[in-house]
Each structure stands twice: as structure tokens, then as C-alpha cells.
């Protein structure tokens, strides 16, 4: 279980990016995090992995995020960044996917086994020797997901996963996400995509939770307009 209690993130200029957010994510559950630009979606995800300093409590399976557990928490929460270009920094896709296991000190054999398994599972083994610079947007996105999956996280956090994707790549991404067993938080503006892959929606507005309920709430256009979307 991923538990977030009264989470607050404040920028150096005093602006509250996240203001008292609390919710839980169960294993296998998919939550859509919806909100206008600047609502605090990305800040929330970055706070969950300890990149942004936050107040409140974040715990994964009972382990509370603090300085000494940061490394463990990061191995249990996999964050897929909005832009795969920021995430794929190694010369080849194989090197990039194996970066996580290597950083966590797995043996070369274990690292190779995990990397090959993930690349095969996601159907991108043919890209293993390619440079990230030469891939399409959809391919980059899959490679970024593979890079995160290589550390076998318990929960996945996606920041705008459909950004820059064509309809075909979006469909492929939706089926990939649905095939992954981990619990997921998917921050997105893409309401159709959210309805396809998530069972619950949380709407953020100016850093606070405005609505938290069944994904069906995204079907009510009047409510969405009322929530600033």
C-alpha cells in the first residue's frame, strides 16, 4: 500500500505546489491524477520519490520516506518522467535499462537477466543496441518504462505518459500499462486515456484534492468545467 498523509510541497518563492494531499493507492490499482497546468501533479509525483522536499508522510508498505529510507523508497516507486529525453541518458537502450539494476548493486548476471527480460516483455528487444536519439516518441516512451521496470518497483508513477504520442502509440501504451501488475498513479490531461486505464480519479486544483472517486466522474463535463478543467 502506498499511503500519502497531509502532503505539502512549497516552492522557495512560498507558493504551495501541493497543499495537504492525502490518499492511498492499493497494489494493482490505477489512479488518474487530473488537474490543470500548475495544479501540482508533477510536484506531487516528484515529492513521492523524494526529489522535492515535502512535509507530511509518505509510506510504501509501511516504510516511511525519510533520509535513511530514501534509497529503498526509490527502488519501490518507479517514476516515468514526462519527457523520455530527460530519462534516457545512456548511449544505448540496453545500457539505459541496466542503469537502475547496476546502481542498486545487482551483479552483472542479474542485471543482464533483468534487462533482457524487461526488453523482451515490452517487445523492444530489437531496440536494445539503438541510441535513444534515434527512436520515435512511442519507442522512447516504452524504453523509459522499461528503464523504470528494471528495478522491479511495487508502484509506478507516470507523468503525462501520452504527451507527444500519436494515436497508435497511445493505444500501445494503454495496453502496456494495463498489462503491468503494479499499482499506478498516472498524472495526465488525457481524459480518454485516463478512463481507459484507471479505475479511480483524483482531481487536483491549486495543490489540493478537489475530487477523489470513481473514474466515472471524468464523464460529467459540467463537473469538470466546475473543477477548472
Amino acid at each position: 500500500m502506498l499511503t500519502i498523509k497531509n502532503l505539502r510541497v512549497e516552492y522557495p518563492n512560498g507558493k504551495k505546489a501541493v497543499n495537504g494531499v492525502s490518499f492511498e493507492l492499493s497494489p494493482g490499482e490505477n489512479i488518474a491524477l487530473i488537474g490543470a497546468n500548475g495544479a501540482g501533479k508533477t510536484s506531487l509525483l516528484l515529492a513521492l520519490v523524494g526529489i522535492l522536499v515535502s512535509e507530511g508522510e509518505i509510506s510504501v508498505g509501511g516504510t516511511v520516506l525519510e533520509k535513511k529510507t530514501l534509497r529503498e523508497i526509490r527502488s519501490r516507486l518507479g517514476l516515468v518522467f514526462q519527457s523520455p529525453d530527460d530519462q534516457l541518458f545512456m548511449p544505448t537502450i540496453y545500457d539505459d535499462v541496466s542503469f537502475g539494476p547496476r546502481s542498486y548493486g545487482y551483479s552483472e548476471e542479474e542485471t543482464a537477466a533483468r534487462t533482457n527480460r524487461i526488453l523482451t516483455d515490452l517487445g523492444i528487444m530489437h531496440l536494445s543496441g539503438s541510441s535513444p536519439l534515434k527512436l520515435s516518441g512511442g519507442e522512447k516512451r516504452l524504453c523509459a518504462i522499461a528503464a523504470v521496470l528494471a528495478t522491479e518497483p511495487e508502484f509506478l508513477l507516470f507523468d503525462e505518459p501520452t504527451a507527444f504520442l500519436d494515436p497508435r502509440a497511445r493505444r500501445q501504451l494503454a495496453s502496456t500499462i494495463l498489462s503491468l501488475p503494479q499499482g499506478k498513479i498516472i498524472a495526465t490531461h488525457d481524459l480518454d486515456f485516463a478512463q481507459k486505464v484507471c479505475s479511480r480519479a483524483i482531481v487536483l486544483y491549486e495543490g489540493k484534492i478537489l475530487a477523489n472517486g470513481d473514474i466515472g466522474l471524468l464523464s460529467d463535463e459540467q463537473s469538470l468545467i466546475g473543477m477548472g478543467l
Partner: peptide
């Protein structure tokens, strides 16, 4: 952002 991505995947 790149450094954050490295940290998220265990780089320290």
C-alpha cells in the same frame, strides 16, 4: 531533470 532521473533509479 536528468540528475533527478538518475537519482530515481538509484544513482547516488
Amino acid at each position: 531533470r536528468v540528475y533527478a532521473a538518475m537519482q530515481c533509479r538509484g544513482y547516488a
